[in-house]
Structures are given as C-alpha cells and as structure tokens.
Computed example of a mutant assay.
Amino acid sequence: MTRELPREIKRLAKAELAALAQRARGLHLGVGRRADWITEHIEDGRAAFMRAILHEPSPQPCHRTLVLARRPDGGVEHFPLDVLPGDFVALPDVSPAQLLGLAWWALDRVPISGLPLEYQAEWDRARRGEPLESPGEYLTP
C-alpha cells in the first residue's frame, strides 16, 4: 500500500521550525538540524519552506520533509526533517505570491550553462576574425 504524500509547500517561522525539530528529536524521528542549531543559525523574520518527499513508517508514521531556510550570512540551509502528518497539515500553505517569489529566488541561484563546445569554438573563431561557416549551409535542407 502506498501512501499519498501531500503536495503543498508549507511556510513556517523560525520558532515553528525549531519546535518541530525539538518534537522530532523527542520522538526519535529524523532531525537534519537540532532546535538549538536552528535558533542560532537560521535568519530571524524570514519564512522557511517545507515540502514532503516521502513517507516514513518507523519509528512512527511521519513525513520526511526537506526544509529550505536562510542563514543570517545570506547562505541557505536545505535539510531533512521528519514531521508528523498532523503537524505538517497544520502549517500554512505557501501563498501564490510567496511561491512566485520562491521560484524567482531559486532560479536566480541556478548558474547559466556554458556554451556547448562546438558553439564556443565558433564564437572563438569569430572573435579572432576568422570566417564563419556560410549562412547557406544552415538554409539547405
């Protein structure tokens, strides 16, 4: 029997995140960061984001989640945290505006891919002033 995972992305404050980490530790669930570490290293006043990635049946049924949270130094923490299903459901969903902001923020961090080698070679020839391939070669079927 497979269990359906929630598809929502949740937002939570630093205090909620620390409380969930403390609860997970007390229940012997997976804790990617302890509550004291979260309190010390996660930025105040910014929402963290959580999504469920799988269902864990033991030591008690829970959702393995991934948490994305900012550090005060501008860095990011992305770590697992096991959360009881009821605790996950009780968290507020990310609003459409927050989701759009999160997508823009994440996309800004993905580096632009380099040119394929054949394109780079053509670019290098053009920069050196060497003739490029005839435009007719691209137009013939």
Rank of each mutant, 00 (worst) to 15 (best):
A90G: 02
D87N: 14
A103V: 15
L100N: 11
R127P: 00
L29V: 03
P131D: 01
S134G: 00
T39Q: 13
A15D: 14
G45S: 09
P135G: 00
V67K: 07
A106C: 03
I112V: 15
A24I: 07
L12Q: 05
L107Q: 05
G26H: 05
L17S: 08
A48C: 11
L107H: 02
D36V: 09
L66T: 12
G26L: 02
D93S: 15
L54A: 15
L117E: 13
R128S: 05
L139D: 02
E133I: 04
R23Y: 00
D108N: 13
E56C: 11
P61L: 01
A47R: 13
K14S: 01
P96Y: 01
S95V: 05
V89R: 13
L12E: 03
M1K: 10
L99Y: 10
E56L: 12
V110C: 04
M50R: 07
P57E: 12
D44H: 14
I38R: 11
A69Y: 06
E133G: 07
R46L: 15
P61M: 03
V89M: 03
R11C: 14
R127C: 08
E137H: 04
S134N: 12
E133T: 06
R23Q: 12
C62Q: 12
H63L: 15
K10W: 05
I42M: 10
L100T: 13
L20N: 01
R70A: 09
R128P: 00
P57V: 08
L68T: 07
A121F: 08
C62R: 14
L17K: 08
P59Y: 08
S113L: 12
R7K: 15
I53F: 15
H78L: 14
D44K: 13
G26V: 01
Q60K: 15
I9F: 04
R127K: 09
A21E: 04
H41D: 08
M1S: 10
